[in-house]
Lab assay of single mutants.
Amino acid sequence: KLLSSIEQACDICRLKKLKCSKEKPKCAKCLKNNWECRYSPKTKRSPLTRAHLTEVESRLERLE
């Protein structure tokens, strides 16, 4: 599967780190437990900047 097509777990399953069936409108866990089942939009991760990478590398060197 391509990364862009990976389905996201519902908010509660993601928060509780449960295996989500990803069914809509309610996944199996939410249906069974009568929880409100919501699927928040995916958040875009910002790409690493060179400055951040350099900072992490220098912190790693100090720890070694």
Rank of each mutant, 00 (worst) to 15 (best):
C20P: 00
E55D: 13
C13T: 01
K26P: 03
P41S: 06
A28D: 09
E57C: 07
W35C: 06
K16G: 00
E7L: 12
R50V: 08
R45P: 03
N33A: 11
N34I: 09
K19V: 05
L3A: 14
K32Q: 10
T43N: 07
V56G: 02
L18Y: 07
Y39D: 01
R38I: 15
E7S: 10
T54Y: 08
K44Q: 15
L15W: 11
R45H: 03
R62D: 00
H52Q: 07
L15V: 12
C20S: 05
K29N: 04
L48Q: 04
E64I: 10
L53M: 15
L2E: 15
T49L: 04
K42Q: 09
S40T: 09
L53D: 03
E61V: 15
E7N: 11
R62S: 09
L60V: 15
T43I: 15
I6Q: 14
E23W: 07
K1P: 15
N33I: 00
K32Y: 07
C10R: 08
I6K: 09
K19N: 07
E64N: 07
K17Q: 06
W35N: 12
L15F: 11
K32D: 05
L2C: 12
K42S: 08
C10A: 05
I12W: 15
K42I: 08
K32W: 07
S58T: 11
K29M: 05
K17D: 03
A51N: 12
T49A: 00
S5N: 10
K16T: 00
L3R: 09
K44I: 15
K22T: 00
Q8Y: 12
I6H: 11
L31H: 14
R62C: 09
V56A: 03
E7V: 10
P25C: 02
L63M: 13
C13M: 01
K44L: 14
S58Q: 15
R59F: 03
L31R: 15
R50L: 06
S58C: 15
L3K: 02
K17R: 08
K44F: 08
T43K: 05
D11N: 04
R14L: 06
C30L: 00
P41G: 08
L3P: 10
L15I: 11
Q8A: 12
E7M: 11
T43S: 10
C37Q: 09
T43L: 13
K24G: 12
K42G: 09
K19C: 06
E61K: 10
K29R: 11
R59N: 07
S5A: 11
E36G: 11
V56N: 01
T54R: 02
K42C: 07
D11I: 04
L3H: 11
T54S: 12
C10V: 01
L2F: 08
E57Q: 06
A28K: 14
C37G: 07
E7Q: 10
S21F: 02
R59I: 03
E23R: 08
L48K: 06
C13G: 00
P41M: 08
R45N: 01
K16R: 05
D11F: 01
T43E: 15
E23D: 13
K16A: 02
R62T: 12
S4Y: 12
R59Y: 03
A9S: 04
R45V: 00
T43V: 12
P47Y: 06
Y39A: 06
C37Y: 09
L15E: 13
L18T: 07
L31A: 15
C13Y: 07
R62F: 12
K29T: 08
E36Y: 05
S46I: 03
L60R: 00
L53N: 02
W35M: 12
K24C: 11
A9M: 01
E64F: 02
K32S: 09
V56C: 14
T49K: 00
L60T: 02
A28N: 09
L15M: 14
Y39T: 06
L63T: 03
R59Q: 11
A28T: 12
E57T: 03
C30W: 08
H52M: 05
I6A: 12
L53S: 02
N34L: 13
L48V: 00
E64P: 07
R59V: 04
S46Y: 04
E7D: 11
P25E: 03
E36C: 13
K1C: 15
K26G: 13
L2G: 15
N33P: 02
E55P: 01
T49M: 06
E57S: 08
P41R: 03
W35Q: 14
N33W: 02
L48A: 01
C27M: 02
K26C: 13
A9L: 01
P47Q: 03
T54W: 08
N34A: 12
P25V: 03
L63R: 09
R59S: 08
A28F: 10
K17L: 05
C27Q: 02
K17E: 00
E55V: 09
R59L: 06
C13E: 06
L15Q: 10
K44V: 15
Q8D: 05
Q8E: 00
K32P: 00
L60K: 10
R62A: 14
L18C: 11
K29V: 04
K24N: 15
N33M: 09
A28M: 14
C13I: 07
N33R: 12
N33S: 15
A28V: 14
C30S: 00
S5M: 12
L63A: 03
R38F: 15
K24V: 15
E61W: 13
K22V: 07
R14D: 03
K1E: 03
K29E: 00
A9W: 02
N33L: 10
P25H: 01
C27F: 07
